[in-house]
Design a protein around this nucleic acid. Structure first.
Lengths: 112, 112
DNA sequence: TCCTAATGCATCAAATACTTATGTGTAAAA
DNA sequence: TTTTACACATAAGTATTTGATGCATTAGGA
């Protein structure tokens, strides 16, 4: 899409937001959701996703629960209490960022 | 501000947009404009700015004109013809990104 | 008078966050 | 039977930025 690099720095926030909405998700499911929600504009690669999930877990924002579906392995992630608070923070920061950026690139259409 | 990292990847676009609006600017001026426009939320550091300007110049998007004001040196940058086209592209990409991200983090308030 | 802050350029090591490639294995579809 | 989807994972390389440092001029406050 060309603008993939604009998403740099927002992956954690996206993951947390999805988990806030859907309660419990596994990695592959996250990539598919994001692809669908963005009409294919954003494709989260595995090389980005799995390290991000591991980091969020290590930081105590996510809990993991391993499940076996058929013969396949799945790791379900969900927000911890701390994770929920951090999600709220990160979403607020994201809104602030979006507002600021909108203001920067298109001053006439943004308030203030 | 904590959300500084969200701006990662958008520096070039910001610079180009400012030059589109203001025709001709020098480095320090850009940092001050951005700080003012964002109420201090985004502070472009010199370590990011100057390499970015040099790259845009090397890529043929900017022209430089050195000026001496008083006893101080200034390097005025302005868009080349190619730079103007690229600016339009990058601004379109940015709008698309902002819309997509808004949709991701706050589905209920965005169209579609 | 002296020190700090502002103005103005610049470079560089380190950190960050990602892409791309690769690897393992199962299951379904063509 | 070969490709595609499912599902995890790591690792080398790349790009962008932070934070530190450096040089030099000018203005302002103590």
């Amino acid at each position: 899409m060309g603008n993939q690099k604009l998403f740099k720095g927002s992956l954690q926030t996206i993951i947390l937001k999805l988990l806030e909405t859907n309660d419990k998700m596994y990695g592959y499911e996250i990539t598919q959701h994001v692809k669908a929600l963005t009409n294919g504009e954003l494709k989260i690669t595995e090389g980005a996703l799995y390290p991000a999930l591991h980091k969020l877990e290590a930081d105590g924002l996510l809990d993991v629960e391993v499940a076996k579906v058929g013969n396949r392995l799945r790791k379900y992630y969900k927000l911890t209490e701390i994770g929920s608070k951090e999600t709220a923070n990160k979403l607020a920061e994201m809104q602030e960022f979006l507002k600021t950026m909108q203001h920067l690139v298109n001053p006439k259409f943004s308030s203030e």
